[in-house]
């Protein structure tokens, strides 16, 4: 019995000390991890959004839920880029559920009139050497300048569309093309909501006269 108690005590002490060290490390790295994530988001947004914005898109967010954006039902952040309060465009993540292996997350940047400025594949688990050519080549560039009506037929070349597929991998590009197209549809339908003046700037009048009102952007 006393042996049992001793063993329990020793395990408790070992667990307690280990937990202490983990907590200390967590404390030490917490800010840095948050900072790294924030910087990563900012970098990604800077890449895909139309150039020349002067607000903080990472903080200018509209949340929308739409089954076409992802199947998980989670709200998607639409980051809005503005210059002097006038919306330039938006960036949002659309998830393709039908890749070759797992979900493909695509960050799509569009101008305010729905023309793609750039896309970035943010997360995927496609086959190395086949499907992952979509990130290792210039393929995402082929989306630049495209919009809902241009091209008329969205799809990979094999399906009669305009986007290249890769040798040995059609499923991946097909999934990405379809997902980006769905994203554009959502953007077109709810453009008004997304590009509405940010809540704190309070209507058109201030959006024009307010000028580059940096102060008003933060929620």
């Amino acid at each position: 019995m006393s042996d049992l108690v001793k063993m329990g005590l020793i395990l408790t002490v070992v667990g307690g000390v280990a937990t202490g060290f983990m907590a200390a490390t967590e404390e030490f790295t917490r800010d840095r991890i948050a900072e790294a994530k924030r910087r990563q988001l900012q970098e990604a947004l800077g890449k895909v959004l139309p150039e020349g914005f002067d607000n903080q898109p990472a903080q200018d967010v509209v949340k929308l839920t739409d089954a076409r954006l992802n199947r998980s039902g989670k709200p998607v952040n639409f980051y809005v880029a503005r210059k002097g309060g006038v919306p330039l465009g938006s960036a949002f993540t659309v998830t393709a559920p039908d890749g070759y292996s797992g979900n493909i997350d695509v960050l799509v940047g569009v101008s305010q009139d729905g023309v793609i400025s750039r896309i970035e594949i943010v997360a995927h688990a496609e086959t190395p050497g086949l499907g992952d050519k979509m990130v290792k080549t210039d393929w995402p560039k082929s989306f630049e300048g495209k919009s809902l009506g241009n091209p008329v037929k969205w799809g990979v070349k094999k399906d009669g569309g305009t986007f290249d597929q890769f040798a040995g991998a059609t499923i991946t590009p097909r999934a990405v093309v379809a997902a980006v197209h769905r994203g554009l549809e959502v953007f077109a339908e709810r453009r008004g909501e997304i590009l509405a003046p940010s809540t704190t700037s309070g209507g058109e009048a201030t959006a024009v006269s307010g000028g580059p009102g940096q102060g008003g952007e933060k929620p």
Partner: peptide, 20 residues
């Protein structure tokens, strides 16, 4: 079990440090 706790703690620490 004691060794596993020690190992798991170090893995968590390495994981957090790499993340940071």
């Amino acid at each position: 079990p004691a060794y596993i706790i020690v190992i798991a703690a170090f893995v968590t620490i390495v994981d957090l440090l790499m993340n940071a």
